[in-house]
Design a protein around this nucleic acid. Structure first.
Lengths: 202, 202
DNA sequence: CAAGTGACAGATTTCAATATCTGTCAGCAG
DNA sequence: CTGCTGACAGATATTGAAATCTGTCACTTG
C-alpha cells in the first residue's frame, strides 16, 4: 500500500475525474477507482458527494481569488485600477469557461444550487470592489454615501460579464465593446453617485 | 362546421394549452384537439411548432411593448422617466414570472435558442432606452458620445433585473434595494459619462 | 485502534421497447 | 379550387426493468 489517503489527494483525483467526465457523469466510484481505493474510503474524508464537489470548487475559486487581487500602483487612478480589475475578471472567466469547461460547469451547478461556497465567493469579490472604491473615495476621485451598497451595485451592473449563466454570450465579437461601454458608464457613475435615499439631483 | 380556422384562433388556443401544460408538455396535437380540428390544419397556418411558439411569444411581447412606452411628462426629468421605465420593466417581468409562469418559461426557452423574436424584442427595448437618453441629452441632463452604445450599456447594466435567467433572484427581500442602487449608479453615470471638462467631482 | 474495505438498502440512472409527436401529402368535401 | 383530413415516416418522448450509484456500517488488516 502506498501513502496514506489524504483529502488533498482525493481532491486532485476528483478534479481529474471531473475534467474527464464532467459534473454530470463523474461519480464517487470513479474517484475511488482513480485512487485505487474503495469508495467507502472517500466517504471517510468527505461526508457527501456534494461536499466533495464543493471542496473542489472552493479549491478552484481560491486560485482565482489569488489572481484577482486589485493592482494598486504608483500613478494609477482608482478608475484605472477598477477597469483593470473588471477586465481581468472578465478575461479570467472567459478563459475558465472554454479551457476548464468541465470545472466551470461544476461551478455553474453550484451557482444554481446557491451553495454557501458561492456566497463566500461573491462576498470576496464584492469585498475587493469595496477596497477599490474606498481607495477612490479617499482620493475624492469617487463619491458615494455607502461604499458597500455601491460595490454591490458595480458587481450587479457588470453581471452579464461574470455570471456563468451568460457564459455563452462571451464569445460574440461585440462583447468586449459592450463590456467597455458598461464599465465606462459605471465609472462615470462612481464619480458622482448617491444612494437612492439621499439622492439629490442636478 | 363552425367558423373558418384563423391564425388568431390558433394562437389563442396555443396560449391556453401552453398555460395549462407548459412549454415542455404542450404539443401541436393538443392545440388541434382544443380547437376540434386535425393537427394537419394547424400546419396549414404555421409551418413548424417552433413558428407557432414564436408567434405566441411575439403576441405576448407585443402586450408588454404596449405597456412599456416611456412616460414623458410635464416637469419630469429624463432621470425620472428612465427610473420609472426601468422600474416598470422590472415590475412587469416579475409579475409575468409568477403570474404567467408557463408563458414566461416559453419566453425563456426562446431566449436560450436566441430566436429572432427575442432579437426584435431586445432591439425594441434598447430603442426605448435610446429615446429616453436622447431626450436627456437634448436638455443637457445627460452627456454621452454615442446614444446607441450608451443605451445598450444601460440595458446590459440592468441585466440582472430583466433577463429571465435571473428570474429566481427576483423574489429575495433585498432585490429592490439592489435594483435602486444599480439604477442610481447608472443615472449618475449618464450625467457624467465621457465629459472632458465641466462639473468637477463633488 | 486507525485506516480502509466491501456488502448492502434505497435512490438514481441507463437502456431499449413502446408510444406519441412532428411534419408531409395525397385525397376528399363543400 | 380551397380548406381540411387522416394516414404515414422519421424523430422524439415515455416507461419500466435492470444496472449503477450514494451513503452506511460491521468488519478486516497492519
Amino acid at each position: 500500500m502506498a501513502e496514506a489517503l489524504t483529502g488533498e489527494a482525493i481532491l486532485a483525483a476528483t478534479e481529474e475525474v471531473l475534467r474527464r467526465y464532467g459534473p454530470a457523469k463523474a461519480t464517487v466510484v470513479d474517484v475511488a477507482k482513480a485512487l485505487g481505493v474503495s469508495h467507502g474510503s472517500v466517504y471517510r474524508h468527505f461526508a457527501t458527494k456534494a461536499a466533495l464537489r464543493e471542496a473542489v470548487t472552493k479549491r478552484w475559486l481560491a486560485a482565482i481569488h489569488e489572481e484577482m487581487t486589485p493592482a494598486f500602483g504608483e500613478g494609477l487612478t482608482a478608475a484605472e485600477v477598477l477597469r483593470a480589475w473588471l477586465q481581468k475578471l472578465f478575461d479570467e472567466k472567459r478563459r475558465a469557461h472554454h479551457e476548464d469547461e468541465e470545472l466551470f460547469a461544476t461551478f455553474r451547478t453550484l451557482v444554481h444550487e446557491s451553495s454557501d461556497i458561492v456566497e463566500y465567493h461573491l462576498g470576496h469579490m464584492v469585498g475587493q470592489l469595496t477596497r477599490i472604491i474606498s481607495a477612490g473615495v479617499e482620493t475624492h476621485e469617487f463619491v458615494t454615501d455607502d461604499v458597500d451598497v455601491t460595490a454591490q451595485a458595480v458587481w450587479d451592473a457588470t453581471n452579464r460579464f461574470h455570471h456563468p449563466a451568460h457564459a455563452r454570450e462571451w464569445t460574440g465579437p461585440r462583447v468586449q465593446e459592450e463590456f467597455d461601454a458598461v464599465v465606462s458608464l459605471v465609472i462615470a457613475g462612481l464619480r458622482y453617485n448617491r444612494v437612492p435615499s439621499a439622492a439629490g439631483d442636478a
